[in-house]
Design a protein around this nucleic acid. Sequence first.
DNA 1: TAGATTTCTTGTCTTATGGCAAGTAGGTTT
DNA 2: AAACCTACTTGCCATAAGACAAGAAATCTA
Lengths: 192, 192
Amino acid sequence: MSGHPLMKIYKNLNIKEEELKLIINAHERVEFEKGQLFLERGQMANAYYFIEVGLARAFTYDFKGDEITTDFIGENEILIEVSSLFRRIPAQENLQALSDGVAWRIVFNTFQDIYHKSSGFNEWGRAWMSEQLFSLKQRHIDSVSLSASDRYLKLLTHKTQVIQQASLKYIASYLGITDTSLSRIRKEILSK
Amino acid sequence: MSGHPLMKIYKNLNIKEEELKLIINAHERVEFEKGQLFLERGQMANAYYFIEVGLARAFTYDFKGDEITTDFIGENEILIEVSSLFRRIPAQENLQALSDGVAWRIVFNTFQDIYHKSSGFNEWGRAWMSEQLFSLKQRHIDSVSLSASDRYLKLLTHKTQVIQQASLKYIASYLGITDTSLSRIRKEILSK
DNA sequence: TAGATTTCTTGTCTTATGGCAAGTAGGTTT
DNA sequence: AAACCTACTTGCCATAAGACAAGAAATCTA
């Protein structure tokens, strides 16, 4: 069990071995293709995914109707639309694959069963959500206190996979700038 | 029980009347003064607060050491440092009163007991966190797609209490602009 | 292989916002 | 009343990033 890909996220679970098995077995291995939508805005989310191989993004639209990439989800991370899954409301974001890959899918009902039975799993879920909130706040601080090029540099050092696999326009909207600006920033950085 | 201030947030709880009483009684009424810190960066959070009367803010510092107001918490909202309380790590944010007021405080251990016993309360907590994530994402979209003055106008219509009670510099850093710029934006808006 | 589409780059010009500094107006303290 | 803060305003100038448009390069497709 300790060599299972899912252990990358469930390692800190404070539970018995058999409960852990139950959780791991509740996931189903799925392969995905570049461009594929895991979830479409307006639909009801019915599962979340652990990305073993590949890269995905979450995106939505601003008031002008332009796409905004709100998050990149890389290997060993969880691809999920929290609001839709946990509040049972239509998704506000799209979840899309940016490369071919492999993921582990757990459906809501199964998740929910275990969530209510296992307080260790429950705590894990809350801690995971806390981390999400934390990192979103951190990103907000970066976005108001760092220049666009510093934000890019930070991404460059912390999320190598994104820089390598995501196209410029997605990275630009994630950073809150235009693709034109990002192209110039890249040029500027290379010339140093 | 239905007239209790705390019912403003716990109204959608899917639980029995006696459980609800238990939850409400777990809160203690506290009065607070303008400027007072509920929680200081570096400390361990040990409670959260429901604000009945008054206004508070969460703030931290950017890499230059400048204060950034990350959130305003108004009446009928919850004042909390999620990461510190649920992950048992030192607080990254300060929580401060911006006016005199009244709050209801619940300490972590008491909360935790009920949280594990009552699946209705547990669900409520998860839904609350989901909403937080949702609104943070929404703010991010606003911050990259709206002009500073549109962001101010949005705050003006949606969070009247903040405009009325928070000082310009706090609002400015919340919006991600300088106080100078906000002053000009206000002038511009008034002239229309 | 040619055509079409998407991705990225570059040029020119505009504009929103920041940096700094000085000034005003209220409120508080001594 | 004088001195002192703090909150806010205003002026001047600098600059990061956007808008628009054209081109180059890469990728997909027929």
